[in-house]
Design a protein around this nucleic acid. Structure first.
Ligand SMILES: [Zn+2]
Ligand SMILES: [Zn+2]
Ligand SMILES: [Zn+2]
Ligand SMILES: [Zn+2]
Lengths: 143, 143
DNA sequence: ACGCTTATTGATAATGGTTGTCAAAATCAC
DNA sequence: GTGATTTTGACAACCATTATCAATAAGCGT
């Protein structure tokens, strides 16, 4: 039977308190920083569980790291992510859903799933970058 | 200055001879199997170069592995990939391009890029799976 | 509240893909 | 051909993730 532990709850809350997508390692650091003695393996497990139960969304960063987020929208949706500050907007894209389904069917493919994510610079970061003239990396700002 | 080596050419050719997306490790195995003594690190480097020069497309597999492919279409496009046999269809998706651009602009995002991939079972593999009743994994068939 | 069964935890080792190291080999301009 | 400079490749290092497994603790029946 599935038991309730403070660890799982801690991960859920920490994820809720996080604005954008975050990696397991980063979330573990955050938890440690706030005094929690939770183990790294447990954070990985909790995030995996949240993702499979649909309570959290996950995606692979372009660098191949798995990132997680507690989304407000419960149904299937996609994301518009700022690659500088991590700000994330949830996007409903019926248009794309239909396209994906159609393109798979046209070619005789079944059991189609899709990965659709848009990465860019949010309005705020666009200003900053223009001011700085430099292009900082997202990961550096979210350790 | 950039020099020409048989290793780079070997990687380019091996990639051309590959039907679907393939990992650096798998391509290295293929090359070795055909008698080439090329080193693994060199395969990684060559694939990275091909990807940055636009001669090859790359994507992250759902398991976080980087996969490469020599595509016939030179311009920007997307892929419909069989998760069982690796068969890949190149897809032009003007509809999605417009959507991605629009959704980014609507939210004030600039420098928008996107990741759009469709994974499914091709017609052939659909039959096999139905016959077998089992769901084999892609990676197992492409060592 | 108590004990028991069993899921869960967490320190650590193991795994696996990828990148860094650096001496040796190869390329190419001259 | 010679030599400066790039490239290679065996191997180590790295880093995210997963497996191990003894110790812990949740929650059930009592
Ligand atoms: Zn931003
Ligand atoms: Zn969708
Ligand atoms: Zn197939
Ligand atoms: Zn596109």
């Amino acid at each position: 039977m599935k038991r309730n532990t403070w660890q799982r709850e801690a991960v859920r809350e920490a994820l809720d308190d996080t604005e954008g997508f975050i990696s397991a390692q980063a979330l573990h650091s955050t938890l440690h920083a706030s005094g929690s003695p939770i183990g790294l393996a447990t954070v990985y497990r909790a995030l995996g569980d949240l993702a499979s139960s649909g309570e959290a969304d996950s995606l692979q960063s372009p660098e191949g790291e798995a990132l997680y987020r507690a989304c407000s929208t419960t149904g299937h949706h996609h994301h518009l992510i700022c690659r500088n500050c991590g700000l994330t907007v949830e996007i409903a894209a019926d248009e794309v859903e239909a396209w994906a389904k159609g393109v798979a069917a046209e070619h005789g493919f079944t059991q189609a799933a899709h990965v659709v994510d848009v990465f860019g610079l949010c309005a705020n970061c666009t200003k900053l970058v223009v001011a700085d003239g430099a292009d900082s990396k997202v990961e550096a700002d979210r350790g």
